[in-house]
Write a protein that binds this DNA or RNA. Structure first.
Length: 554
RNA sequence: GCGCCCAUAGCUCAGCUGGAUAGAGCGUCGGACUACGAAUCCGAAGGUCGAAGGUUCGACUCCUUCUGGGCGUACCA
């Protein structure tokens, strides 16, 4: 609908230029938006006011000319008004709205999808937590945000791949191996003191027990360095397995797990350094190799190879992004915790040095979750072993409520997660409000079936019977769903979907309480049954994008 | 010190890229089931959009300064 109106406006502007009412100026994007006030029509455009400055004419005059030259050949417009300082307000014919319902009927589960991103390969990289311990609640927000962004892009026609980058080559991994080593030796007996700089969590003891099962006592005879090396890989493998299971239970499935060590195995990091050297982006200073990121707007240059000859994490990360583009991704999206924001200019410098345009990389920051228990902050540290695992939250709150909770806020806003409240609130969590609407419609359809009515096709109803204001509001909301997904994909904002779900459910509940669907009137019953079934389809499609189940009963 | 993010109803948050009279949920108060599910609905109260300037036809939205909170400022990852 939005697109149709924008096209009408563009045509009209061309006509006006042809008639020399307007002069040809800069090509401006024609904006069409939803007015807040119902009296201002179904859609409104401010194009006349935007044009006014370059045309040096009264915006109302321009608006009048554009409105007067609109060629509504499809006959979708009830009327056009010029209002206020120069808004052009569109009032859509009821029939035009209702005809959109046919698309729901035709497309079913695919309703809402578009091909806006057709032909483009996108990779969404998220979570990417080091395998040094189980995922905790702080990772959950990033996980669900990345997952849903990927789903939305996929629904918009992009070819999407979900990827998890495993940082398994750094010093943190050495600490993990060392931690397990000491716990293992404790098991072997011998009063060894457990170092303070090691991971304190109980899961390390569990890992040590697994080591014992696997290797017996044999390892304790080995050289410490060799043993730690073996244990690092062993522990990381088990932890990654647990992470995969937890994510799976959370409804997050990755297409690929990419290991940092892969980059070293195939000399990816070395090749990257050669490329940077070849392009003159690096220099040596104080025994280290530096990448001149300041040339791309960073505040200071960054080390890529340390004095001791070891490449930095940053070097590996650029190599990783180089690898992503080499795999053919047109756009790469990184979902990061907000504590990494200082890293952004560096990363952009990296991809630009590789000859990529800045637009090939999108970084979505997810603000950290502030964990509370009865209003009091809970310290979270993997090293100290103080954290609430994702698994525990899932067990207490459930997947649907947890996911919906995270999706109700803009990823850029801070979020308090109170463990006690989460549990108490789960009974009046908004997710149930939406799911209830879906289940309620399922129930209506069951009741209708008992009385001999099946859900008709669009061609089988008299659409003219859908004349109530509440019905029209529902139809409009349904009609806006495809635009919503497109906007959500463009802005990478999943929360728009949850707000839409709430609104659609709310409108439906209001309608349900005021009017009956199944009545003695055959024709009316059919029309209304079709309408609520369409609402149900949209709710189901929206919830599927969010990774939340749409129950028939609850 | 410098940089990024946040500040909107008592609380938790939206506000669609600068639009018209700033909206929801929770909470509070008052109402609605002998008909399709009351996990629902209807109504009321609740605001100097952190503060002060600026940009323009028009600002919650953009710019500057300030206040308060979070995060970051490694040859860690």
């Amino acid at each position: 609908m939005k697109k149709k109106l924008a096209a009408l406006l563009r045509n009209s502007i061309e006509t006006c230029i042809g008639k020399e009412i307007l002069s040809r100026g800069d090509i401006l994007p024609v904006g069409v938006e939803l007015p807040r006030e119902g009296a201002h029509g179904d859609y409104a455009s401010n194009i006349a006011m935007v044009l006014a400055s370059t045309q040096k004419t009264n915006p109302r005059k321009i608006a009048g000319a554009i409105a007067g030259n609109i060629d509504d050949s499809e006959g979708i417009l009830e009327k056009i008004e010029v209002a206020g300082p120069g808004f052009i307000n569109f009032f859509i014919k009821k029939e035009a709205w209702i005809s959109l319902l046919e698309e729901v009927d035709m497309q079913g589960d695919l309703y809402g999808e578009s091909d806006a991103g057709r032909g483009k390969k996108v990779q969404v990289e998220f979570v990417s937590a080091n395998p040094t311990g189980p995922l905790h609640i702080g990772h959950a927000r990033g996980a669900v945000t990345g997952d849903v962004i990927a789903s939305i892009l996929s629904a918009s026609g992009y070819e999407v791949s979900r990827e998890y980058y495993i940082n398994d080559a750094g010093t943190q991994m050495q600490i993990l191996g060392k931690s397990v080593w000491y716990r293992y030796r404790e098991l072997m007996g011998g009063g060894i003191e457990f170092p303070a700089d090691c991971y304190q969590g109980d899961y390390i003891r569990d890992l040590a027990k697994k080591v014992q099962e696997q290797y017996g006592e044999s390892l304790s005879q080995s050289d410490e360095k060799d043993a730690i090396s073996i244990l690092t890989g062993f522990a990381a493998g088990i932890i990654m397995e647990g992470i995969r299971d937890d994510l799976c239970a959370f409804g997050v499935i990755f297409d690929r797990y990419f290991s940092e060590s892969e980059l070293y195995r195939d000399d990816g990091v070395m090749r990257l350094l050669d490329e940077l050297r070849g392009k003159g982006h690096v220099f040596e200073d104080a025994g280290a190799l530096w990448f001149r990121t300041t040339a791309f707007g960073d505040e200071k240059d960054r080390v890529v190879v340390r004095e001791n000859g070891e490449p930095t994490y940053f070097a590996a990360d650029i190599a990783y992004h180089r690898n992503k583009y080499a795999r053919g991704f047109d756009i790469v999206i990184d979902i990061w915790g907000a504590d990494h924001h200082g890293y952004i200019p560096r990363m952009y410098a990296g991809i630009q040095a590789l000859g990529k345009n800045k637009s090939a990389l999108e970084i979505v920051l997810v603000q950290l979750v502030n964990l509370l228990r009865r209003g009091k902050p809970v310290a979270m540290s993997t090293r100290a072993g103080e954290f609430v695992t994702l698994r525990e939250v899932l067990d207490e709150v459930g997947k649907d409520a947890a996911r919906y909770n995270f999706l109700m806020r803009r990823s850029n806003s801070h979020l308090d997660f109170d463990l006690e409240l989460a549990k108490e609130q789960s009974s009046d969590n908004p997710v149930y409000y939406v799911q209830y609407a879906h289940a309620r419609i399922a129930s209506i359809i069951r009741t209708a079936a008992e009385r001999g009515h099946s859900v008709p096709r669009f061609s089988g109803i008299d659409a003219g019977l859908l004349g109530l204001p509440e019905e029209l509001t529902l139809v409009k909301l349904i009609g806006q769903f495809p635009e919503l997904i497109e906007g959500s994909a463009q802005s990478l904002e999943p929360h728009r979907i949850t707000f839409y779900c709430n609104e659609l459910a709310s409108t439906f509940h209001g309608y349900y309480n005021k009017h009956r669907v199944v009545t003695e009137d055959e024709g009316l019953t059919k029309a209304r049954l079709f309408l609520v079934a369409a609402v149900q389809t949209v709710l189901r499609n929206a919830l599927r994008l969010l990774g939340v189940t749409a129950p028939e009963k609850m």
